[in-house]
Design a protein around this nucleic acid. Structure first.
Lengths: 233, 233
DNA sequence: ACCGCTTTTTATACATGTAAGGAAAATACG
DNA sequence: CGTATTTTCCTTACATGTATAAAAAGCGGT
């Protein structure tokens, strides 16, 4: 982390590879061959170094993936035109995040990581919170609302893409089907009745609709105080 | 189909270990030493076998974890008394699932797996869908509503527990803090204003409140038809 | 008893992330 | 110049999940 602005060079052996080179090479591998092919040794070979040398530029593979996601977000997360109505701004911002991330299934391992607080996402978070406040939520509730939206969004992506991945490299019938076959209609009547339509129903993309419902529900709390945790902390 | 009356032994070498033994031994290891200590070799040693022998009783480690979760759910997921009001039944059922799973942080890797359609959870799914239908949602929307609830629930658990795990074995300051430090108040005014309260706000447990909002929002769609959302397509 | 057939168990091997320790290449100071 | 210091890089080693193939243990039929 030495300042490049400083005229005097840093002590120590000069680096042959840079963090940026690591990230960009990793990006190329992921883009062209998929995230499965991204191994530390492979990446090092591509750069012309060794696996362990990478660890002086990224903390570990997980951080590398986070950095890749940051990079991806910075390039692919375009700010949408913001609608006039504040609740629509919330929908637009959250929808934009979801859209960008859903196109990028390999991030699932990363998404669970932190709050996904990369710099490029912050603008969207700001818009969501701004919209909720503009709708009349107090700032605290707006933050909680943002988190609810994020839980919903991350959950949708994680569940959907891991289910898809599972379906892909697992040829035997889905766990679900085995379970559904054994349903006792007298105990679980609705599930029994819906069983055959379940695959097609759950295959539909209902993210937007659910998001709208969630935002509506969050805004309905406008008048009521927070309830249990209204206190000071 | 061979005659069910004759308990004729199956052909082939008789098994020395059973799937049930594998699961129960794995459970003991997880309970006493944590999920990190659960390795295939360790498990095999505990049983008095070899790692590869386990693979004739479970498909792989991931399936073993799913089975463990099933087992856990079957023992710890107690059916709550159902309130009279249908929307409260939805809350109660979803809340019960969340409560059981949140107490069991190691499932995070599993939760992303399938739809979490183990037999013992089905009753709760039934109650959620029943409640939504009783509130006036058509069955299709009830299923979509259930899925939204599940996304929200799974997302909450995944995000929260991985963040916690991260904080635990990573001593350096959270990613979040570094990012928040660089916020430009003129660009992201709300975030800048909320920055110092962010940790305490996001540390609060708002699952129930968010769940209520989500359910309210889902029910608000009662009147509207399935809803091609305006202008999306 | 021997032979195929089936299923379970074992032995061996490999890819992967990464810990540990030492070698290399630069500067700083004498 | 030489020595210490600092940073980067390389070699080696280990734990883990699991692929592969061989061995073992039971069966019925001959």
């Amino acid at each position: 982390m030495p300042e490049p602005s400083a005229p005097r060079r840093a002590p120590g052996r000069p680096p042959r590879i840079s963090r940026e080179e690591v990230i960009q090479t990793a990006r190329r591998i992921v883009d062209t061959e998929g995230v499965d092919r991204l191994t530390m040794r492979r990446l090092a070979a591509e750069i012309g170094s060794t696996a362990m040398a990478l660890y002086h530029h990224v903390l570990n593979k997980e951080e590398l993936l986070v950095l890749l996601l940051d990079d991806y977000a910075a390039r692919n997360l375009h700010r949408p035109d913001l609608p006039a109505r504040p609740e629509e701004r919330v929908i637009a911002a959250a929808g934009a995040i979801h859209e960008a991330l859903a196109d990028c299934p390999w991030i699932v391992d990363v998404i669970t990581a932190d709050d996904l607080m990369s710099t490029s996402v912050l603008w969207f978070v700001e818009q969501i919170i701004e919209g909720l406040i503009a709708c009349g939520l107090p700032p605290d509730q707006a933050v909680h609302g943002y988190r609810a939206i994020w839980y919903y969004t991350a959950g949708e992506i994680v569940v959907r893409t891991t289910a898809a991945r599972r379906r892909q490299d697992d040829d035997r019938p889905a766990y679900r089907d085995r379970v559904f076959a054994d349903i006792d209609p007298s105990e679980l009547p609705h599930l029994a009745r819906l069983a055959d339509r379940w695959p097609s129903l759950t295959a539909q993309d209902t993210y937007r609709a659910g998001l709208r419902s969630l935002v509506n529900g969050l805004l309905a709390d406008r008048r009521r105080p927070t309830g249990d945790t209204a206190g000071t902390e």
